[in-house]
Design a protein around this nucleic acid. Sequence first.
DNA 1: CCTACCGATCGGTAGG
DNA 2: CCTACCGATCGGTAGG
Lengths: 196, 196
Amino acid sequence: MARIQTEKDVSRKEVILKASAKLFLEKGYKAASMRDLAVKVGVEAASLYNHIRSKAELLHDICFNVANVFFEHINAVEASGATPISKLETLLRFHIQQMIDNYEEVFVSDREWRYLADPYLSNFQNQRRSYRKRFAAIIQSGIEQGQINKIDASTAVLVILHAISGIDSWHRSTHKVSGEELTENIVTILVEGLKK
Amino acid sequence: MARIQTEKDVSRKEVILKASAKLFLEKGYKAASMRDLAVKVGVEAASLYNHIRSKAELLHDICFNVANVFFEHINAVEASGATPISKLETLLRFHIQQMIDNYEEVFVSDREWRYLADPYLSNFQNQRRSYRKRFAAIIQSGIEQGQINKIDASTAVLVILHAISGIDSWHRSTHKVSGEELTENIVTILVEGLKK
DNA sequence: CCTACCGATCGGTAGG
DNA sequence: CCTACCGATCGGTAGG
C-alpha cells in the first residue's frame, strides 16, 4: 500500500513538473503563479503542496535535470576517441536535438535559472561555467590541430550555445521545418559558415 | 519658465528610463519592483509617477526605442548599393556594436518584450517579424547570387540574432576581450564558419 | 517630491 | 484534495 502511494506521488509530481515547465516557458518564472499552475494541473493551488515543497523546487528540478543530461553527454563525448571537429559536431547535434525534443525544460533552464535561490544558484552557475570550459577545450584542441579556424574558443562556445537556444521560436512559428532540415541548416551555418 | 520645467522633466524621465533598463536587465521586468527602481533613482516610489505613467511605459519605451534604431539602420542598408554579403556583414557588425554600446536596452528589448501589453505587444511582434523578413531577404538574395551557402534564410537569421544576443555575458565575465576582438571573432565564426 | 494608504495578488499554511 | 485564510509585497493614487 505504502509503495503504491509513493509511486502515485512520484508520477503526480512529474505531471506537475511538466506542467510547470510549460507554464514557466509561456509566462516566465516570476510571472507564473501557483494558481496558474493549479489550473493547468486541474486542482486547487493549495493541493499542489501535497506533492511539491515550493515553487522554487520546481525551477530547481527543471534546471538541474537539464544540466545533468548535458553533463552526461559531454562526459561520453570526451571519453570517445573522436577528433575535436567530430566531438564539436556531436555536441552541436545533441544540443539541437534536446532543444527539439525537450524544449520546454531546456528553454526554461536556459532562460530562467537566474531566479534560483542560493545555494542552488551558485551551484548552477558553477556547473554552467564548467560545461562551457569543457566545450571550449574541445574547440581549442581543434584549433591547435588545425581542424578549426583560429578564433577565441570561449566566444565560439557562447555563439554556438546562444544560436541554438533560439530555435524554439520555430516550434511556434508558421514556417514549419522538419527537425532534420533544421539541424542540417544550423550545423551548416555554424560549421561551414554563411559565406560560400 | 514652462520651457525649463519641460526640459527638466524630459531629462528626469531619461534618468529613470536608463535606470529601469539596468534594473530590468538585472532582475527581469516582472521581478523588478518600482520600489527597487526608486532606490536606484534616489527618490520614493510614489515620486516616480510624476515623471512616468506606469511601469509598463518604461518597458514600452525601451523596446520601441531599440526597435527604431534597428529599423533606421536596415533602411539605410537596403538603400545602399552594396552586395548581399556586404549588407549582411554590415548588419552583423551593427548588431554586435549595439550590443556592446547599448547592451542594457538591447538586452531588455530582446528578452523582456513579451511582458508588453496589447496593443503594443502585437505591434512589437509585427515589427520584429518584419525586421527578420527583411534580414532574411538580404540573405536569400545572397544565396541566389551564389555568395552565400545554400541554407534556409530564416533559420540563418535566427541563428545570427540569437548568437549575437548572447554576447552580453562577456561584459560580466572575467575573460575580458576588447570590442574589436570580440566583433572579429563573431564575424569570423558566422561568416567563415568554425571548420578550417 | 513625500507620507499615507488602497485593492489586488502573491506563495504558502492550517485544518479537515 | 478542498475551504479558508495569512502576511508580504505589488503597482499605483490622493493629497499636500
